[in-house]
Design a protein around this nucleic acid. Sequence first.
DNA 1: AAGTGATCATAG
DNA 2: CTATGATCACTT
Length: 223
Amino acid sequence: MNSQNSPKSLEELNQRANMLAGLTLGQIAKQHNVKVPANLRRDKGWIGQLIELELGATAGSKPEQDFLHLGVELKTIPINATGKPIETTYVSVAPLTKLTGLTWEDSLVCHKLQRVLWVPVEGERDIPIADRRVGTPILWEPSHDEYLQLKQDWEEIIELIALGKVEKISARHGEVLQLRPKAANSRALTESIAEDGSIKMTNPRGFYLKTQFTQAILSRFFG
DNA sequence: AAGTGATCATAG
DNA sequence: CTATGATCACTT
């Protein structure tokens, strides 16, 4: 009930999130009269959207935390039978230009990851979407070590971008944070910095958390 | 099997 | 196009 309304406190958000543990996506979708897709090939963000709807996250695609008034970002994370993440976790688009003066503390990555409500969901492809169960949500804040790891990776990647080497950055860069394409397709273009400092066009990129990092977060709570 | 690069839907 | 929500699918 009141699932359309945004939670007014961290406690309320946590309570509502915890009530989802054990439910299937089909059960949650039914409460909202939402049809469950047969697969996620053309509905990749469906699970995230469903949980946003259920928990009352603000709609829209603003580059901010989902619960700005609570300082919380919502992330669903697909896990296998062992409880390990199946996929990397998208965080935000990466700025490829106008980088002078941009600091880690001011970055979108830093802001979004200050506090995250992780909602694990069974993600193995042989489980029908409607039958996939939601796990116990985790309200997480980066430890000091995690914060420093994220900061270091971000600064390293941003420096390479600023030096005009964005094309040379692969997903192998970074220990916990990686840069990968984030676009409709490989033909999409956006402005970036060239090696001579001028502007060139390149495929848009986004920051992603590696599974090893998110696995450590889940382990911290579940063992 | 894992990991990297590519892709899909939608709102503004 | 940019940003949100991510997962797909090919290569290694």
